[in-house]
Design a protein around this nucleic acid. Structure first.
Lengths: 114, 114
DNA sequence: GCAAAGTGCTAACTGTAGTTAGCATAATGA
DNA sequence: TCATTATGCTAACTACAGTTAGCACTTTGC
């Protein structure tokens, strides 16, 4: 079921780093940590502190909350606190043109199947 | 203005513990950590890992997010600026995989600029 | 062909988180 | 009065997070 959160954190981080087109050293420098350490984190050999995680998240411009969840440090977003419905948010977003709104909704629906 | 988050964490924790009518040892046992360590945390001598923080939070039945913010580990609630934020909705949508989330965010961001 | 620079990795070290053992004081109760 | 128990604290240790130095392998450019 839920994959090991700690070892999974590594591959998640690596994924995000690659998607951001960053080398290990570049990402490490952005996060202000050493590249061997980031390497060890990505391979699941070390479990970074939350401070480090936050720094990495900032460096990769991704959500710290997301990272914490993957690190098993924060409990998964409880469905009970009723996160805003994404579809609804898109529909009512004033910053989107109608065309953009439609496109974004299409992408979203293709993902969640509906 | 904003007090030092790290040293402030200690007094915040102590406050919460006293409000819960727990002795140091009781709180430590509930959190599954040693009482000297909790003592040092409360006095700002040690900075606990996020895992420990989470355990303490659970023991005191308080919000882990709250604690993380006080620990300076999580940035203060960001949704103040945009009440119903599409970006936020996408980020916290449990139906999306991380890849999909990233992709959708990329599309959205390309639309609204930011 | 071969420097030069970029890739990720290993080894060995340092610092600090978190431990156990035990101290001093204050409150309870026989 | 004196043992007992709970309070928080200090000291000394262990484990591991995070460091620097440097290796082997590709890729780029002259």
């Amino acid at each position: 079921m839920t994959p090991n959160p700690v070892s999974d954190l590594g591959s998640y981080l690596k994924d995000q780093r690659l998607q951001a087109q960053l080398s290990l050293r570049q990402a490490a420098e952005r996060a202000g940590i050493s590249n061997p350490y980031l390497s060890q984190i990505e391979r699941g050999l070390k479990r970074p502190s939350a401070e480090i995680l936050q720094a990495i998240a900032k460096g990769l411009a991704i959500s710290a909350e997301q990272l914490y969840v993957h690190a098993g440090i924060l409990d998964a977003p409880s469905d009970e606190d009723a996160p805003v419905d994404t579809r609804q948010a898109i529909k009512s977003d004033p910053r989107l043109s109608d065309k953009q709104r439609k496109a974004l909704l299409d992408v979203y629906e293709s993902y969640v199947g509906d």
